[in-house]
Simulated assay, not measured.
Amino acid sequence: MKLLRNVTLAAVVMMQTNSAFADVTSGIKMLEAGNVKGSVEVFQQAYDEGDADGAFYIGRLFELGLGTDKDMVRAAQLFGAAAIKGSAKAQNRLGLMHLNGQFVLEDYERAFELICKAAETGDADGQFNCGMLYKDGKGVAADEAKAVAYWQKAAAQAHVASINLLAQAYKNGAGVNADAEHAAKLFANTAAAGNPLALFELAKAYTHGAGVKKDPVKAYSFANLAATRSMEGAAELRDALRAQLSVEQIKEAQAFSRGWKAKPVQFVQ
């Protein structure tokens, strides 16, 4: 079964490779290096050899219009072929398309089936999105505790958005007992990696003393960092905090922001 059809780029019509074994990892490396033709050949062979993700990645090429005309219908077909053969990435992506009614039927139950099937395989994006479905009650009865459970699984894989939502849950007591200290700890994790939302939330925590000791200097520093990342509301908080600080405190806060360096997100246990 050839996965690419009617491709405008003649270079990717013929899909033959001399490689004895193909894997999607090498295909991704080729794609990152700008070798679309080579990546498609590898993805095709990987699919032929039983790796369903091969079809997923060719679907992504159609979705993004890389090496071919953008074709969302064809992308959905490829995601469907990959999903049937067990690709968690394809199940999650096709599920999101059903959730939003993008080139497939808007169908919350189908979205839940696909996304949460991906989650059960351990796919972090699937776990994040499955949690969102439980939170919003789409395709399944709303259950904040189950939402938190899925985000915890994804957070254990250092999934930034899941860590942030887990932090929000602890901050608001949604699905778990409210714990401002733990919420601040989780936000500090993703803030350290430069996540704008987490930087802003940490700034607010230091502003009000929520889960951390009240510290307007640190609050200004983190609001300053969030503002440079265009986080809505961060510049306003920074400006309000500035009025509370002495000249020396502003100097200290700005030096902290200037010397701050991002580091990788830590796994959440």
Rank of each mutant, 00 (worst) to 15 (best):
Q269N: 15
C130D: 03
V42I: 15
L105A: 15
A76E: 03
A75L: 04
N35H: 08
A191R: 08
P264C: 04
N92C: 06
V104H: 05
T68Y: 00
A83D: 11
V217F: 13
R74E: 01
T121K: 12
L165C: 10
D123A: 07
A111L: 04
L66G: 02
E49P: 01
K70T: 00
L225T: 03
G259S: 14
G54L: 01
L78A: 05
D123G: 09
A203N: 11
S162M: 02
A90L: 07
Q77V: 13
L241Y: 08
A188D: 13
A262T: 15
Q254I: 12
N6C: 07
V24N: 12
L165V: 04
E49T: 06
V7C: 11
L241P: 06
L66T: 01
A235Y: 08
I84C: 01
A90V: 07
G101S: 11
A124L: 03
K70M: 09
E201Q: 15
G54F: 00
I84V: 14
G259Q: 14
D48K: 12
Q102E: 13
G194Q: 07
A227Q: 07
A88M: 03
G259A: 12
G50T: 07
A155N: 04
P216S: 01
A141N: 12
N35G: 00
A255I: 04
R93Q: 13
A155Y: 09
K70W: 04
H98M: 11
E252M: 07
V268Y: 13
I115E: 03
T121C: 03
N18D: 14
M15G: 04
A169P: 12
A234E: 02
A46N: 08
L105Y: 09
R229P: 05
G67I: 04
G34N: 09
K146S: 08
L166H: 13
V160K: 15
V268E: 10
S26Y: 14
Y150I: 02
G194P: 11
V42S: 06
Q152D: 04
Q254V: 13
G173I: 06
A191F: 13
Y220S: 04
A205C: 10
L199E: 04
A142Y: 14
Y170G: 01
G95C: 02
E232V: 13
A203W: 11
N189C: 01
L241F: 02
L202N: 03
A81E: 15
A147R: 12
A20E: 15
N195H: 14
F200P: 05
Q157W: 10
T17Y: 05
G65Y: 01
E252T: 14
P196V: 09
V40L: 00
F187A: 06
N164S: 10
E120C: 13
H182F: 11
G211S: 02
S19V: 08
P216Q: 08
Q44I: 03
A255K: 15
Q44R: 05
F128R: 06
E232W: 06
D48Q: 12
L4I: 10
E109H: 15
Q168T: 10
A141F: 14
P216Y: 10
K204W: 10
N172G: 09
K135R: 10
Q249V: 05
A205M: 06
V104M: 05
A188I: 13
L61V: 03
G59R: 04
K89S: 00
L105E: 15
Q152C: 07
A210R: 13
N92T: 01
A111E: 01
I28K: 15
K213Q: 14
P196I: 12
F128M: 03
Y47E: 00
K70V: 09
M72L: 15
L9V: 08
A227M: 12
